[in-house]
Amino acid sequence: MTPADLSRTVLRAVRRAVDEGALRAPVPACVRVERTRPGGSGDYACAVALQLAAPAALPALEVAAVLRERVAAEPGVGRVEITGPGFLSFTLDAPAAGDRAVLDAVREQGLAYGHGDALREEILQFHHAREVRAAVTAHAVRRLVVAQGARVRVSCAEASDPDWARLGVTVDAHGTPPVPLTGIRPVPAGATAGELLERLGPDATRWGLLRPAGHDRAALGPELLVQGEANPLFRVRYAHARARALTRGAALLGFTAGHAPDGEGPFPYDGAARPLLDLIADHPGVLLAGARHRAPDRVARQLEAVAHAFFDFHDSCPPLPAGDEKPSAAHRARLALAEAAGTVLAGGLSLLGIRAPEHL
């Protein structure tokens, strides 16, 4: 069971409790589950009972008890505990099976892994000034919310800068529309699109504008073009290219990705693989949070974390056999994780409007 699966499972439990009359409260559009913090209980935690307590006119602990009995019987859920003032803590069955489910989801969904329909009921209007960082940010936010099912229209206060098209930016209308709108107002870049494109090119320009939080000034110097580990954009794209190279190398050696039996070799599911698996499992939640908070910087930081964990995993558990070593089930499992990381990196870069080359 993936975090997204667990979120849907809890939401179904809420809906069932309401349908059965055990709770009288509006059913939320989605339910957020988070990894348990250090010292906490279980694998994941959820505060939905606290959210529903007031509208249900019941103590949060009582709401949690109603939901606990409906979630505990679901396949893949090993144990459900009530902690603190009414948090639900979940321990999942068969962690190895859950990890396999995450990797299978990435393989099946490809670049769309993490996309969903949580915002399908929303019709949004974004508006921004005639300024390159605002335009690029609005464009990236549009991609994020559309990937979660929303319908979006973007307007600019004045006619678009023609150079925005070279950054992939499109605008639906000009002028201030006579409808409620959401302003996209990051700290201005201090340069025009043409100036940035001439110095940095489209990919580095978009990364430099989107990586900082909107309230921070964007660093747009030559460091964005450095081909080295100190440059986060290079590291993210190099991790993607390396993951693709591993697939090509495995094909030359006559094997493909697959799942390893439990307990075979240093992988699966422990050691250096664990942080990378957890980041991949959390990726859908990061994309949804980036969409809800209009924050493409969250996606950029997630990609940096995935790249860092990928290289740690790659160095500790090489997916390709060395020397005369024969490919094993562990190598196939490591390759599956490496390929999933590459897919997540490519998908995230695509949402930011940045290319993910197969070769660097």
Results as ranks from 00 to 15, higher is better:
residue 189 A to S: 13
residue 189 A to D: 10
residue 193 A to M: 06
residue 193 A to C: 07
residue 193 A to L: 11
residue 193 A to Q: 11
residue 196 L to P: 08
residue 198 E to I: 00
residue 198 E to R: 11
residue 198 E to G: 12
residue 199 R to C: 01
residue 200 L to A: 04
residue 200 L to W: 10
residue 202 P to T: 14
residue 202 P to L: 14
residue 202 P to A: 15
residue 203 D to P: 05
residue 205 T to R: 00
residue 206 R to P: 07
residue 206 R to K: 09
residue 206 R to E: 08
residue 209 L to S: 09
residue 210 L to Y: 05
residue 211 R to G: 02
residue 211 R to M: 07
residue 212 P to R: 07
residue 213 A to V: 10
residue 213 A to H: 12
residue 214 G to I: 05
residue 215 H to N: 05
residue 216 D to I: 06
residue 217 R to A: 14
residue 217 R to D: 09
residue 218 A to V: 04
residue 218 A to K: 05
residue 219 A to P: 02
residue 219 A to Y: 08
residue 221 G to K: 14
residue 221 G to Q: 12
residue 222 P to N: 08
residue 222 P to H: 07
residue 223 E to W: 08
residue 223 E to Q: 14
residue 223 E to K: 01
residue 224 L to E: 03
residue 224 L to S: 02
residue 225 L to Y: 09
residue 225 L to Q: 04
residue 225 L to K: 04
residue 225 L to W: 08
residue 226 V to H: 06
residue 226 V to R: 13
residue 230 A to K: 01
residue 231 N to F: 07
residue 233 L to Y: 05
residue 234 F to K: 05
residue 234 F to C: 04
residue 234 F to I: 05
residue 235 R to L: 13
residue 239 A to T: 13
residue 240 H to M: 07
residue 240 H to R: 15
residue 241 A to S: 15
residue 241 A to L: 12
residue 243 A to T: 10
residue 244 R to M: 01
residue 244 R to G: 00
residue 246 L to R: 02
residue 246 L to M: 05
residue 248 R to Y: 01
residue 249 G to V: 08
residue 249 G to P: 06
residue 250 A to Q: 00
residue 250 A to V: 05
residue 251 A to I: 04
residue 251 A to S: 13
residue 252 L to Q: 10
residue 252 L to W: 02
residue 252 L to C: 00
residue 253 L to F: 02
residue 253 L to N: 00
residue 253 L to E: 09
residue 255 F to L: 00
residue 255 F to A: 09
residue 256 T to K: 00
residue 259 H to C: 03
residue 260 A to V: 13
residue 261 P to I: 09
residue 262 D to N: 06
residue 262 D to M: 01
residue 262 D to R: 11
residue 262 D to F: 05
residue 263 G to A: 07
residue 264 E to T: 15
residue 265 G to D: 11
residue 265 G to E: 10
residue 267 F to L: 07
residue 268 P to Y: 13
residue 269 Y to E: 15
residue 269 Y to A: 15
residue 272 A to C: 01
residue 273 A to G: 15
residue 273 A to P: 02
residue 274 R to I: 07
residue 274 R to E: 15
residue 275 P to V: 14
residue 275 P to F: 09
residue 276 L to T: 09
residue 279 L to Q: 03
residue 279 L to C: 00
residue 285 G to L: 08
residue 286 V to W: 03
residue 286 V to Q: 02
residue 287 L to M: 15
residue 287 L to S: 11
residue 288 L to E: 14
residue 289 A to G: 10
residue 289 A to N: 10
residue 290 G to C: 10
residue 291 A to D: 04
residue 291 A to H: 03
residue 291 A to S: 09
residue 292 R to Y: 01
residue 293 H to G: 00
residue 296 P to M: 11
residue 296 P to H: 06
residue 297 D to H: 14
residue 299 V to W: 13
residue 299 V to Q: 15
residue 301 R to G: 12
residue 302 Q to P: 00
residue 303 L to P: 07
residue 303 L to R: 12
residue 304 E to P: 06
residue 304 E to F: 11
residue 305 A to R: 13
residue 305 A to F: 05
residue 306 V to R: 08
residue 306 V to Q: 06
residue 306 V to H: 07
residue 307 A to M: 06
residue 307 A to S: 13
residue 308 H to S: 06
residue 310 F to C: 03
residue 311 F to K: 04
